[in-house]
Amino acid sequence: MSLVHLISANTRMEFIELKRYLPNTIAMFLTFYIIFLAMFFGINVIGDPQHAETNIQYGIVNMVFWFLTMMTLSNIGFTITLEATRGTLEQLYMSPYGVWRILLARFIGYLMINSVIVVLLLAATMLTANQWLNLQPHIVIPLLFLTIIGIIGIGFMIAGMTVIFKQMSAFLQILQFILMGLAFVPLSIAPFLVLAPFVKGFDMVREVMIHGFTWSHFTAADLSILIVNSLVYLIIGVLVYLKCEKVAMTKGLIGNY
């Protein structure tokens, strides 16, 4: 039950911060919207006109995935750096629930708020492009939920590294291009990416939204791979974070910026 209160406190905190830094928040969404528009018109101008519709749908879905992963992961690195700079990180470490649970609560809170924003962004995107995707929430939501578990795992790895190295902005900039690759490349082109985090999940959601797949189109193996992949990344992520925390505590790096 306490974890629920932890999530509630952190979701509220994320929402308040988004509200208090409103110009920043608006600028962030505008940036992504402008990136999408550039992508949309780019496809229209330089793409094959015969496949323009599919390409645009593909572009919209990928852009939304990229936005979701990038915002979540960069937020995690940024949160740790910001907390260390502000002087609040040490205070978070005074919680008997451990910082990894607080971070988990923050991820969940952040993802909940971001999901609402993503839905709005997606609606705006579809409206602008006049391309309507197969949303099928009863399939997309569970698939995205499973995919997000893997994203959280990667988030923990980034958080762990940030606790030790603090300045991760350069790494996060490189990461956004890696994420772009993972979010954009379909498994049919690079099957080995099935081992990478969240690629399988995004691929499945893409199939639903663009090609109208339903549950019956997926095999038990597809779902098993998605579940195992996400859980493995989550477990590795938490273990990496706890190890980094231990190193930081031995070297006296907690809170030092």
């Binding site: 306490s2 509630s8 406190a9 509220r12 308040i16 208090r20 830094y21 502000r86 205070q91 919680s95």
Partner: peptide, 24 residues
């Protein structure tokens, strides 16, 4: 510096209580 400067006095107290597992 242990406080969140963009939160109000009450919000700070509520947030830190929440981080200790207390219901708001």
């Amino acid at each position: 510096r242990n406080l969140y400067w963009r939160l109000t006095v009450r919000e700070n107290l509520e947030y830190f209580a929440g981080n200790r597992g207390a219901r708001r």
